[in-house]
C-alpha cells in the first residue's frame, strides 16, 4: 500500500506500485486537469509539483511519490488566482489549452525557484513543455508578467 498526499488529501494505492502517477491522478483519483501528451517525459503536459519541484507525472511511479506532497493544477491555488494563472489570463495565452496546465505548473515551479527569471532563463526552464498550438511568445510574456506582479 502506497500512501501519498495529492493537493493536501491523503491517498492510498494498493495496485501496481509502478503505475505512472499521471494515470493514478487522472484515472484512479479523477483529477483530470493533468494531461497526457507523450508518456515519455518529452512534452511536459503531465507536469505536477512534488515538494516544490516540477516533475513529469508520466514517468514518475506512484511509489516514487510515496509519502510526498503532490500538487496538481487543481491544487495550485484555491480560486485559480496564483500569479501565474492570473498572468496567463491577462495575456490570453491559451489556444486549444491542452498543454496549459503543464505549462502553468512548470512556470509556477520556476518562479518558486527563481522569482525574477531572465528572458533566457524563462526559455530554458520552459523548454521541456511543448505547445503544439505555438503559444510560446505569450507563455514567455505571461511568465515575465507573473514575475513582475500581476
Amino acid at each position: 500500500m502506497v500512501k501519498l498526499k495529492i493537493n493536501g488529501q491523503e491517498q492510498n494505492w494498493d495496485g501496481d506500485p509502478d503505475l505512472p502517477l499521471l494515470w493514478f491522478i487522472r484515472d484512479e483519483i479523477g483529477l483530470t486537469g493533468t494531461k497526457f501528451g507523450c508518456g515519455q517525459a518529452l512534452c511536459g503536459s503531465c507536469t505536477v509539483i512534488i515538494d516544490k519541484q516540477a516533475v513529469r507525472a508520466c514517468i514518475t511511479s506512484v511509489s516514487d511519490a510515496a509519502g510526498r506532497e503532490v500538487t496538481t493544477i487543481e491544487g495550485l491555488h484555491p480560486t485559480g488566482d496564483h500569479p501565474v494563472q492570473k498572468a496567463w489570463r491577462q495575456v490570453n495565452v491559451p489556444q486549444c489549452g491542452y498543454c496549459q496546465a503543464g505549462q502553468i505548473m512548470q512556470a509556477a515551479a520556476l518562479l518558486t525557484d527563481n522569482p525574477k527569471p531572465s528572458h533566457d532563463q524563462i526559455r530554458e526552464a520552459m523548454s521541456g513543455n511543448i505547445c503544439r498550438c505555438g503559444c510560446y511568445q505569450r507563455i514567455e510574456n505571461a511568465v515575465h508578467l507573473a514575475s513582475t506582479g500581476v
Binding site: L31, T32, T72, L76, G80, R89, P94, G97, Q100
Partner: peptide, 11 residues
C-alpha cells in the same frame, strides 16, 4: 477573452 480561459488555467 475566450469563454474557456478561466477553466483552462485551473484544469
Amino acid at each position: 477573452g475566450i469563454v474557456d480561459l478561466h477553466d483552462i488555467t485551473t484544469g
